[in-house]
Design a protein around this nucleic acid. Structure first.
Lengths: 348, 348
DNA sequence: TATTAGCACTGTTACTTGTGGAGTGCTAAC
DNA sequence: GTTAGCACTCCACAAGTAACAGTGCTAATA
């Protein structure tokens, strides 16, 4: 593909992302100051179409990017969109909130991204198996409530409560502390499986009534980590593609299906930013949408995955720039936070 | 209004709720086995219309219920819809899960209602000010993480974590335990206000760096209790009223505005079940929808508010019956649970 | 050989017109 | 008080038309 073709293709896609209308040869020449006539552009467009980068909605319509076109655009043409000063300020302000629990981090990041990009944003926390249990602590609340606190290596904390019908003694709590720590400390935060459960039960002479609920609750809390966070569901509805009821309905249904969202967010390769355009999505329900995800990490530790979902005609350049910026910012904040335990004040 | 009018009005509304089409005099006679002719029915319909219970979409169309009509229907005509055996079974199964945290309770109830009624269901937890602090407990995790656990009188637990830059000693923890308990135990779970904050600070000689984050976090956890839970957002989209893009968009936007949902759920009078039809909603954004809410309580303790939102043409009778049933069931479960601390096994 | 002006052609959109049908309101008869 | 009968209204849908935006192709041009 020669330079002129690239230039024209880029212009078509930029224009289409802006207007959502099929792009005509005339408009390209006029708006993008191309120094050849519309007829020449038409010839190029015809060729780009026959190479699969563009489509037409009907014989005499302007051109519309194909999925192959978008893909080429994302991979080769798109230029980085600068994050504006106001946006930077806004992001820094929101991310400088002191964050102790992973849910908060995820929520704040999600809402920030949604507000800046104006797209619907979804997120999940870290997959349990990527976290290492640093300590388990049992705390007695009153005489019949036992709280289990699990601390993981990324400095985050999960807790759950078990209610008993009989009193629990402080010495039982000590034993539990020792037992569970000796068994689980340093292990990944996986559900406690049958063999491990048997083993724990065999090691302790308490009634099964005491241990069983603990294991159940721990497993529950580990599983439920897979919660999906949403922000800005309504935002997409102002986009012209949502004029089609079919698409709008599809979109809502997709968001409403948690399993689908989980699968989608978890399927990202370990690249900084993943872009899936239409049919590139593994899930056929997502074929009309594009998705951009990134795993946010501190060092080699995964803290969750955040994704944007929108029409294929998405402002990829904006979205990706914002994600890159936020990803970097998060990393900085959390790394200083973790090494120095300082309150993160953004140095102007 | 005489009996025949009532009968006809009820038939119109029942039919409209089923079909979503304007109801004609002929259809009424045929489907509802009325023993007078369509002409008579037409006369009655005309009168019901002039009294404001019915509307027409155009001069020669069938009748459609007005808001006044729906209101009369809900208040006087509607007969209780029996909850079917399968539904009862399903509800009992879902509600018999052992529940320790209020979030779980709310989530499970919300999803149960949504699944049975096929409407979008929203919920919030108990308003903080209705809960009484029973105890506050500080627990040291490692040497620089402090966990604050707040137990309330409805047996539910809230916790939060504070990270420090310096070590915290066990004796400090003791002091905090004493201080906060003596000040807050027995008080409603309100945010800690300035005077109280001053008072606590004056009572203790720790650096402000220790106390301040505690108060901030406690306040944060109290505020965030006002979380909104959703289930079945997509369900409504199959209803014919959502053919109108206007309405569909409105609906999504309404759900997307948390403040609106909070306001709406909190505005319920202390009646068992509140029904708001269209313009009866205080929030003008909700004028095209009907909302049915109930506060779920154990004894006189509020545990949260759950609401269904759907088109004005809602199956009120079904929705209200399900809510009544679930409300009763919740109450039973929790009361036995609380008085005996027994696992709630449903007695067939 | 690459570019471009010119023009026929195509499909879209918006507007009009016409027709069948569903349902009402009214009148007059029962 | 009820009902058969009928004129009337309005909608939904189909078909036709006109304006127009934009293309593809041809032939002329640099």
């Amino acid at each position: 593909m020669d330079d002129r073709k690239k230039k024209i293709l880029q212009a078509v896609i930029d224009e289409y992302i802006n207007t959502a209308e099929p792009v005509s040869s005339g408009a390209l020449v006029k708006k993008y100051g191309l120094d050849y006539s519309s007829a020449t552009v038409r010839n190029e467009l015809a060729e780009l179409e026959s190479n699969g980068y563009l489509d037409k909605t009907h014989t005499s319509s302007g051109r519309v990017p194909s999925e192959k076109g978008y893909r080429f655009y994302v991979d080769e043409l798109m230029k980085d969109d600068n994050v504006s000063l106001e946006e930077i300020k806004y992001i820094q302000e929101k991310l400088s909130t002191k964050i102790n629990e992973i849910e908060d981090l995820t929520k704040i990041t999600t809402s920030t991204i949604s507000e800046i990009t104006h797209y619907t944003t979804i997120a999940i926390g870290p997959r349990p198996e990527t976290q290492i249990i640093e300590e388990i602590k049992f705390v007695l609340l009153g005489s019949r409530m036992l709280m289990v606190v699990i601390m993981t290596d990324n400095g985050l904390v999960k807790e759950t409560i078990i209610k008993y019908e009989k009193d629990i003694t402080q010495s039982q709590v000590e034993t539990l502390n020792n037992l569970f720590n000796s068994k689980l400390k340093g292990k990944p935060l996986n559900k406690i499986d049958k063999p491990m459960e048997e083993y724990i039960l065999s090691e302790i002479n308490y009634s099964i009534d005491v241990i069983k609920p603990i294991i159940e609750q721990i497993n529950k809390v580990i599983e439920q980590e897979e919660q999906v966070y949403y922000e800005g569901t309504g935002k997409s509805f102002d986009l012209p593609e949502f004029k089609s009821l079919e698409i709008a309905k599809n979109f809502v249904n997709v968001l409403d299906t948690k399993e689908l969202m989980l699968e989608m967010l978890n399927s990202g390769v370990a690249k900084d930013i993943n872009v899936y355009i239409g049919d590139e999505n593994e899930q056929k329900e997502l074929k009309d949408f594009s998705i951009v995800t990134f795993k946010h990490t501190v060092g080699d530790k995964e803290l969750g995955t955040i994704g944007i979902i929108g029409p294929k005609r998405m402002n990829y350049s904006k979205v990706i720039s914002v994600m890159k910026y936020i990803s970097k910012k998060l990393n900085n904040n959390l790394q200083t936070n973790q090494s120095q335990e300082n309150e993160t004040k953004d140095t102007k």
